[in-house]
Write a protein that binds this DNA or RNA. Structure first.
Lengths: 127, 127
DNA sequence: TACTCATGTTGATTATCGTCGACATGATGT
DNA sequence: ACATCATGTCGACGATAATCAACATGAGTA
């Protein structure tokens, strides 16, 4: 319940309280406890951590490029991803791990090769 | 034309070429120059850098929270944002700067106060 | 004018992340 | 069996980013 607030220094918290309470008397838009509670509700919802994970997964130039390529081509193997984005194979493996962990892409093994395609959630991110 | 490829070591490039050329003879899905060219077209399009900037702007817990709050409340001043996300005012200023630079939110000054609201592009990011 | 308040800016610190080399694994082919 | 190939994992390094304290700015106020 106090996770967010605990990240503020106590001096700033004490200074912030009366300042905003005074503001509510003049400007009806400022309301400290209301916004703090609303922010906590949003941050503690089920969708927020998932969405944050997905957004952070595509917040990289190479990974956003991979997602766009998958949207156009449907399915790519790891070597094709490596050729497309121009990094070492260890980096490709790392990026695809981030994308799969976020639920943006889904991996499929076929012999030596690993194929990747977008999940429905991944497709929704690009609409 | 060689920006992406130059990020690979020459040894890996030389090893990758013949490997994929052989693959194209067996698996029709592997095609090195085609994917490299497609990736370059996407990365050099007008929308890609803008989208990357916007996605990176909301790829932070606090900033994603701010964007959600703005979607619900319409407009917030800086002190309300500070109260909601629980960081120092310098950090709030930094986050709002990142969001405005990406075109996700728009700032409006009224006397001492700074009000922020989502841009159409920012609203589109959350749909 | 002097003072307070809301916000922006700067510099430094800390943490996180992208990248790669080296090694491991598991499948394919000779 | 042995070599080769595609991919994964680990450790380290460099770059980037989040955060705050301190200072600066500019508007309202007594």
């Amino acid at each position: 319940m106090l996770i967010i607030v605990d990240m503020m220094s106590t001096s700033e918290l004490e200074a912030l309280g009366p300042r905003l309470e005074r503001l509510t008397g003049e400007e009806t838009t400022c309301c400290l406890p209301e916004y703090r509670a609303l922010a906590e509700r949003i941050a503690r919802s089920q969708r927020f951590p998932e969405l944050l994970l997905q957004v952070r997964a595509i917040a990289d130039e190479k990974r956003l490029l991979v997602v766009h390529l998958l949207k156009r081509r449907g399915e790519l193997c790891a070597c094709e991803v490596q050729a497309a984005i121009g990094v070492g194979h260890a980096t490709v493996s790392h990026h695809m791990r981030v994308l799969t962990a976020a639920g943006v892409v889904r991996a499929r093994r076929e012999g030596k090769w690993a194929y990747y395609r977008l999940t429905p959630a991944g497709r929704r991110l690009l609409s």
